[in-house]
Amino acid sequence: MSNVAVSTRPPEPRPRSGPAAHQRRGRPTRHRDDGRAGYVFLTPWLLGFAAITAIPMLMSLYLSFTNYDILTPWSDVEWIGLKNYERMFGDDPAYWHAVKVTLIFAFIATPLKLGAALGVALLLNRSFRGSGLFRGLFYLPSLLGGSVALAMVWHSLFDRGGSVNAVLGWFGVEGRAWVNDPDTALGTLILLAVWQFGAPMVIFLAGLKQVPTELYEAAEVDGAGNLRRFLSVTLPMLSPVIFFNLVLETIHGFQGFTSAFVLSGGTGGPVDSTLMYTLYLYIRGFANYEMGYASAMAWVFLITIGLVTVVLFRTGRFWVHYSDGDD
């Protein structure tokens, strides 16, 4: 690990001029016992977790062992043990189909989206005339979220008579009804996800800005070319942010709901080809009123993605470089 921070100078010792109140509490021993401070800073989150996040989560865990159907009052909910889980694993082909669709989507869309985001972020990193506008333009698609208008746009592009086929026609390729064809509908969904690469792009841009310019200058003095600079400076310095985007986009990839919902009109069609896990979960919960089952699905999802995340964190130790020297 190249130690970056050595070359940076600490800031002016401004704290001296700061309010003396902070020093009154006895100077912290140089070692790490910020125990109390840690919990002070964590208070809002802890409160939020206890009061707002934890209760609904526990409720949903409880409901996953029941036949809860939303409409029946809580008091009449029936405990059915592991039945929901048994059904999911043994007696629901659509469930496994949804798992398959989701895996395909996540494994293709996530790397493509991250690649597009990093590539464009590198292109836009330098300031040039209009660079802000470009950043905005590339971010625009993400702003559309899951609106009805977006669905209509995508259908008009990828339908049989749509613009994509018109372009393909110039090259003598005969297109098909991409969005309405069970073989290709998931592909259009992946393209939509990649098209909305704005969010990770912005995070990459912000990360790139955090790379101290001195490092590039030092590398240039050493005679490093563009590629070397990228590999030995940009990538390691950017790795925490790359890691963040990887974790988040993986989670988002697996959770992909909105675009599948909007493009398929909430059905996961044609013929279940875009039936993402969370969309299926939503259909079970809100259209079929099988919220107990949906909750069980959600907890299986949490555990699975949790494992994936743990694996990512573990592998992250080998390639993510933190300037703070922690692991």
């Binding site: 609904p56 989560m57 949903s60 939303i70 896990y277 979960l281 919220m291 959600a298």
Partner: peptide, 11 residues
């Protein structure tokens, strides 16, 4: 990690 749809009702 928990899909938000199962949290809507409890929340």
């Amino acid at each position: 990690l928990l899909p938000s749809h199962v949290l809507i009702v409890p929340q």
